[in-house]
Design a binder for these strands. Structure first.
Length: 588
RNA sequence: GCGCCCGUAGCUCAGUCGGAUAGAGCAACGGCCUUCUAAGCCGUGGGUCGCAGGUUCGAGUCCUGCCGGGCGUGCCA
């Protein structure tokens, strides 16, 4: 509808230009939906924008513009208002046309081919497999999933990916933590390291190891701790927790040998990864690919990335380490890619990973990170630029923290003690639908206050229930109609739609017509919250209509028209909820 | 110190490429159930858009400075 009006305006401009008005050729008329209904349905500020170039007063120009507009059945009337706005009032028939449009398109209503199949990768969550996902990861999961689905809905070929950090020191700490717990289960006396992973899940993995392999992985405690630097003593502040845990990792590798160490490591990794996969899939979040960090090293991508940087002359040695000159590309300082001990850094893997992403041919790559990683953006972009790639192909979207509230109080979380609220616990408490909806209700760069009590409440205060209830209500009306033996045939001719004349009906029609534009905006700006707000509005339009008018009236023609309208509403509610990963219940 | 994000009604937040009289929900107050689910609807009150400049036909929106809050600033991942 918007584009049709745009075409009318373009035609008008062409005509004015032919009359000799100096209008820049590149001018593309901008059309906006009005905020105020007294300004019509759509408006353009074209006359204001062109006034200077045309050497004419805005209002005079607006009048010439209106006079030049081709006749159209879409339009009820066109008015000039304020300093020179041109307001378009659509004919009611133009709005009613949305009903057949929705009902024929069905689930496809709101989908488009803007992206024309261009390939986009969305990488999200990518939490280290050192423990279960917590509520912070949940927001990234919900946000990423909806962004991906929105892009797919507007015609992009979306590849959803989880980057698995299955290499590196954190994973060694996990493997060692599992082993130490296992030794405790074997009856060894183990002072657990302050820097180890203390969660219950570590015990669970250790118990599996003990159950399946008995004492086969056992070592004696004194042997394990022999010659280690002291752990941090929280009382006195003496000791070094980093040196202590590194010593323990070395002891584990030495005492277990390569094969047995690898086994414990893999057991920990796979157990947790399976848990994360399961958790996400129950959350309705699925991936096309789980991409292993280790595989980057194994196939030589990390070395290749380093070589490419070296060839580009962007590496140098200092203090025994190999540095990337990222400060030459906008980063605040240079970064190490190979440590003094010869090991490549996490950053080196990440350079290789992003190089690999672009090599895989994605036109656009979207990373969704927790906001605490924002300082990381310049160095990754710097690396891409140094490699000769185009850094603008990478967009990093930062998701701020989610803070849980229960009974008006902030829920305390601390990863240090292993006491955190997991995504699984959250889902169990408020349910998948409420969690998915609440997580994307705010712009991603806005801190999210997640009210657990509200998410659980079954009332109008709760936006999820409010929207779902609208859907269930339509279904309920249709059941009533069936019980009364009234025919419902959505594919029957749209002969009675002109009976829809009430304000509530026109309002609902207008909201339904807006949906495709809304999906487009939400997708292109990566803003799922627009969709949650829209659905609330749509539900409100429906509930208001429901309260003001009876649908199942004796007048057959009117009844038929109203049922078609609410069928269309149900379809759009269902489509929108579907994009959010929230169910659309038939009854509540 | 430097960098990124945020600051709009009592609370939580929308606000389209800069557009017309700044919106919604909650909370508060007052109404509506012999009628398709009251998990709903209607109404009332509530604002120095953090502050000060600038850009222009027009600024909550763009620019600069300041104030306040969050996060970051590893040869960790």
């Amino acid at each position: 509808m918007k584009s049709q009006i745009q075409q009318l305006l373009t035609d008008a401009l062409d005509r004015l230009r032919a009359e000799g008005l100096p209008v820049p050729v590149a001018t593309l008329p901008t059309i906006e939906r009005t905020r105020d209904p007294t300004h019509g349905d759509f408006a353009t500020n074209l006359a204001l924008v062109l006034a200077k170039a045309a050497g004419s007063k805005p209002r005079q120009l607006a009048e010439r513009l209106v006079a030049a507009l081709p006749a159209s059945t879409l339009m009820d009337r066109v008015e000039i208002a304020g300093p020179g706005f041109v307001n378009f009032f659509l004919a009611p028939a133009a709005y009613r046309a949305v009903i057949p449009e929705v009902l024929t398109a069905g689930q496809g209503y709101g989908r488009s081919n803007l992206g024309q199949g261009r390939r986009v990768q969305v990488e999200f969550v990518s939490a280290n497999p050192t423990g279960p996902l917590h509520v912070g990861h949940g927001r990234g999961a919900a946000y990423g999933a909806v962004v991906a689905d929105l892009l797919a809905a507007v015609g992009y070929a979306v590849h959803r990916e989880y980057y698995v950090n299955d290499a590196g020191r954190q994973m060694d700490i996990l493997a060692t933590s599992v082993w130490l717990r296992y030794l405790e289960l074997c009856g060894e006396d183990i002072p657990f390291p302050s820097n180890g992973y203390k969660g219950d899940y570590v015990w669970d993995i250790a118990a599996t190891l003990h159950r399946e392999h008995g004492d086969a992985y056992r070592a004696e405690s004194p042997e394990v701790f022999a010659g280690l630097p002291a752990d941090l003593d929280p009382e006195t502040g003496t000791g070094d927790k980093e040196a202590h845990i590194d010593g323990l990792i070395a002891a584990a590798k030495r005492l277990l040998g390569d094969n047995r160490y690898r086994y414990v490591f893999e057991l920990g990794l796979n157990t947790i990864l399976d848990d994360i996969r399961d958790d996400l899939s129950q959350f309705g979040v699925v991936y096309d690919e789980w991409y292993s960090e280790r595989s980057l090293t194994e196939k030589g991508a990390v070395n290749r990335a380093i070589e490419r940087l070296r060839e580009a002359g962007q590496l140098y040695e200092r203090d025994g380490a190999l540095w990337f000159r990222s400060s030459a590309f906008g980063d605040e300082k240079d970064r190490v890619v190979v440590r003094e001990n010869g090991q490549t850094t996490y950053f080196a893997s990440d350079i290789a990973y992003h190089m690999d992403k672009l090599e895989r041919g994605f036109e656009r790559v979207i990373d969704i990170w927790g906001a605490d990683h924002h300082g990381y953006i310049p160095r990754v972009k710097a690396a891409l630029q140094a490699l000769g790639d185009d850094p603008s192909r990478l967009d990093v979207l930062l998701v701020q923290f989610a803070i849980l509230y229960r009974g008006g109080e902030k829920v305390q979380m601390s990863t240090r003690s292993g006491e955190f609220v997991t995504l699984r616990e959250l889902r169990k408490e408020v349910g998948r639908d409420a969690a998915r909806f609440f997580y994307v209700m705010r712009r991603c760069e806005q801190h999210l206050d997640f009210d657990l009590d509200l998410a659980k409440s079954q009332s109008a205060d709760n936006p999820v229930y409010y929207v779902q209830y609208a859907h269930a209500r339509v279904a309920s009306v249709l059941r009533q109609a069936a019980d009364k033996g009234l025919a419902i045939d959505p594919t029957a001719g749209m002969t009675n739609l002109e009976r829809l004349v009430e304000d509530h009906e026109i309002g609902l029609l207008k909201t339904l017509a807006r949906y495709p534009e809304l999906v487009e905006a939400a997708a292109l700006n990566e803003e799922p919250h627009l969709l949650t707000h829209y659905l609330r509005e749509l539900a409100n339009d429906f509930h208001t209509y429901y309260n003001a008018h009876q649908f199942l009236v004796p007048d057959e023609g009117l009844r038929d028209a109203r049922i078609k309208l609410i069928l269309a509403a149900r379809q759009v509610l269902s489509n929108g909820l579907g994009l959010l990963g929230v169910s659309a219940p038939e009854s509540m």
